[in-house]
Amino acid sequence: MFYWFLKFIALGPLLRVVFRPRAEGLDNVPAEGAAILASNHLSYADWLFMPLVLSRRVSYVAKAEYFTGTGVKGRLQRTFFSGSGQIPIDRSGANAAEGALISAKGVLGRGELFGIFPEGTRSHDGRLYRGKTGVARLALETGVPVVPVAVIGTDTVAPPGKKFGRLARPTVRFGEPLDFSRYEGMAGDRYILRSVTDEIMYAIMRLSEQEYVDVYASRAKADAKKAARAGDDEAPREGDRKAS
């Protein structure tokens, strides 16, 4: 009930009035039954705007820390995330991917919608990065369709590294469902998993019109930080400039 309270009374109406999000391709999302909504990931606000434009509930996995806080802040945070459709998962351990998969299967097994960001983390520069194969494994093991999704403009509302940016009108674009039933029983083949994942990412790329980079986003972020630190180290200090 808290999910619908947030969506239609407490938070949703405010977001609709302030940001006026647009939705395209809503007919591509099944009116009933399970489906995976695979989206690009530009901002922490993505998980707010995508469910906002749908009449059905969408569940995601979220860091377990959001559900284990203490005190007033911890209780409020726990209530918000659990009530807004988030599922706790410990992403620090070796079994994080397996735990996420089990949680996702539970959502899909109930005939609900499960949202996933195949890139695994937010894009730091607006480009679309290589997808992780968990989305393919989930699709093949459950047999449900994958709806590619492009969320556009959320990196203006909430840019990477900032809580707030500037006012913009986000667009959520849903593509035609992808059916991978031809690969039934092949979830253990890593080449099939990569092929399915790449097909999903290609569909997202066409919807979002982002530049695609065949590198994992986490690796690209690490390389960017390393390059930035190297640049800072090479920059001349004030004393060096005076001496020269």
Rank of each mutant, 00 (worst) to 15 (best):
R206T: 11
R173Y: 03
R137C: 00
R194Q: 06
V172D: 12
E209M: 00
P170Y: 02
K162S: 13
V149T: 07
G153C: 01
R166Q: 14
T156P: 10
S208R: 06
G188H: 10
S181M: 01
D189K: 10
L207P: 05
G165A: 06
M201H: 11
F180S: 06
L138N: 00
V144E: 07
L178F: 02
F180M: 03
R182D: 12
L193H: 07
P177E: 05
R173V: 12
E176M: 09
V196T: 06
L138M: 09
P177W: 04
E176D: 08
D179C: 06
I152A: 10
P170S: 10
G161P: 05
R190P: 02
V135S: 04
P170F: 00
F180Q: 01
M201G: 06
G161H: 11
L138H: 08
L207C: 03
P145C: 11
I152Q: 07
P170T: 11
I192S: 03
I192F: 01
D155F: 10
L140M: 11
G165C: 07
P145H: 00
F174T: 05
P159N: 10
L138D: 04
E141R: 13
E211H: 05
E211G: 03
G165N: 10
E176A: 15
A168P: 10
F164Q: 04
R194S: 12
E184N: 11
A158N: 13
A158Q: 14
V157N: 08
Y191Q: 13
G153L: 03
L140C: 12
